[in-house]
Computed example of a mutant assay.
Amino acid sequence: MTLMAAVDASVKVAGLQDLTIHRSVSSIPFAGRYRLIDFALSNLVNADINSVGIFASPPFGSLIDHIGVGKSWDLDRRKEGLFFLPTTHQNGGIATVGSFHDFEEHLQFFEKSRHTHIVVTSSFVAGQLDYKEMLDHHLASGKDITEAVGTGGSLKSYILSRRLMLELIHSYRQKRILSVEDLVNLKKAPYSYGVYEYKGYFAIIDSIQQYFKESLGLLDENNRRLLFLPQAPIYTKVKDEPPTRYLDGSSVSNSMMANGSTVLGNVKNSIISRAVTIGINANLDHCIIMQKCTIEENCELAYVIADKDVYIEKGVRLTGTADRPIVLRKGERVTKEDSQ
Rank of each mutant, 00 (worst) to 15 (best):
residue 103 F to S: 04
residue 33 R to T: 12
residue 259 N to H: 12
residue 176 R to E: 13
residue 138 H to K: 06
residue 144 D to P: 08
residue 243 P to H: 08
residue 275 A to Y: 00
residue 185 N to I: 11
residue 227 L to H: 07
residue 115 H to N: 14
residue 41 L to R: 01
residue 51 S to T: 15
residue 42 S to T: 02
residue 142 G to P: 12
residue 116 T to L: 11
residue 91 N to Y: 14
residue 117 H to R: 03
residue 295 I to W: 04
residue 4 M to L: 15
residue 54 I to L: 11
residue 85 L to N: 10
residue 90 Q to W: 13
residue 105 E to L: 13
residue 228 F to D: 04
residue 224 R to H: 07
residue 195 V to S: 11
residue 290 M to C: 12
residue 52 V to G: 05
residue 99 S to G: 05
residue 220 D to L: 13
residue 181 E to L: 07
residue 89 H to L: 10
residue 116 T to P: 00
residue 139 L to P: 08
residue 239 K to D: 08
residue 8 D to V: 05
residue 18 D to T: 13
residue 304 V to F: 04
residue 71 K to I: 13
residue 329 R to Y: 11
residue 295 I to K: 03
residue 252 V to W: 06
residue 33 R to F: 01
residue 94 I to W: 09
residue 233 P to V: 03
residue 168 L to H: 06
residue 256 M to C: 06
residue 267 V to M: 03
residue 81 G to V: 09
residue 192 S to W: 03
residue 38 D to Y: 05
residue 35 R to L: 07
residue 299 C to H: 03
residue 120 V to W: 03
residue 128 Q to L: 00
residue 142 G to E: 08
residue 323 D to S: 15
residue 219 L to W: 07
residue 272 I to M: 01
residue 188 K to C: 07
residue 317 R to A: 13
residue 127 G to Q: 02
residue 60 F to L: 12
residue 77 R to I: 10
residue 31 A to M: 09
residue 176 R to F: 02
residue 316 V to L: 08
residue 277 T to S: 13
residue 85 L to F: 04
residue 129 L to V: 14
residue 73 W to M: 08
residue 74 D to G: 12
